[in-house]
Design a protein around this nucleic acid. Sequence first.
DNA 1: GGATCATATGCAACATATTGCATATCAGTC
DNA 2: GACTGATATGCAATATGTTGCATATGATCC
Lengths: 198, 198
Amino acid sequence: MSLKNAILVLLEGKPGTGYDLAQRFRGGIGQFWSASHQQIYQELKALGQDGLVEFELQEQASRPDRKHYRITAEGRAALKAWLEGPWKPERISSAILLRLYAANLADSAPVLEELDRNLAQFRDKLAEYLQQESSHLARSGRSSLRQALVYVSLRFGIRNLQSWIMLLAEVRALLTQGRVPERPALDELGPAGGAGRP
Amino acid sequence: MSLKNAILVLLEGKPGTGYDLAQRFRGGIGQFWSASHQQIYQELKALGQDGLVEFELQEQASRPDRKHYRITAEGRAALKAWLEGPWKPERISSAILLRLYAANLADSAPVLEELDRNLAQFRDKLAEYLQQESSHLARSGRSSLRQALVYVSLRFGIRNLQSWIMLLAEVRALLTQGRVPERPALDELGPAGGAGRP
DNA sequence: GGATCATATGCAACATATTGCATATCAGTC
DNA sequence: GACTGATATGCAATATGTTGCATATGATCC
């Protein structure tokens, strides 16, 4: 139901090919929505049949032809209706969280291996986001609603990553030293942080 | 692939009926995994055919008969193997986040309505979790690994809720006053908080 | 007395997502 | 000269999840 809308949001921002969209799903919005290229192409086809998007075929000499999609007026209306519609409660499912929760049932060696790989990845991503945040702060005097929304979403993403890193670090400590650290080890967190302990 | 494992984790903790599991998915573990009863019954059937769980039929006079499931040795082995196996990168998808991100494309009145409903719900849930946290802290001297994992998961859930509440409050301020609040309005957050600004 | 909720399980149809495969070319690396 | 990665699109089979319906009873609310 909402991959459809995710695509419409992206195309509203800027027209592009299915391939472009797949790229964009890996950046920014990837934080809260992503999809494989197979899914995207299928969905674009369906959206086209419903008249919510349209495309222009751009023939290319060497590379395969590209279908350059853009949102239609009808598409914009459908998106607006969805945005203004009721929110359904969301079903969370995270296999990683499940594994951590049940980590006592496994040998810790293999779990720690994966945990460390993920910890490193999360830290890299956090560094990236923090950089984006500071460059946003640098260029912002008075920002539009659009920009402000992008900014608060980014901050949300940062907090989430920090929270994940903290969890992984805590579980790591539990599995290696058998204790919960008093002050979780998170020195490299930078600004835009968490809830602020009273 | 992992509803299967989520069920095994639950049954490992304590045997029960499909109905029981559905209940439990709404509490604690609901934070990171949940499923409808239809899915659960189907999965239990499949797990039974694979020999990972078994059940005992308890006939009841008035109520429908219950199938009391428990995990088998084979089930435990399969779960352990999964827990020690590789972690796949997770695909995030949140329709709510998507809506907030694109909130500039909609009339704010209907968005604010849903936003406020959700804000209230999140705050209620947070209060609940905070209570669970303090009761956990009260009874804990030296805790087992199992208990510690439950505790860090709970804290993770608390941080996430706080982060959501912060986001919703920020978007709310943007839509009503057109600005990002300097210090997000979040006085009722209590302990177990965020990342701690340096 | 009727409505709703909790208990308890399940089928069937449909929607959505994942996995594997297929095609085609250019650029750069080993 | 072979392999990998970026560009660009797509089909088909399978797996997973959602929605609607069906059954049956006791308890509680209004």
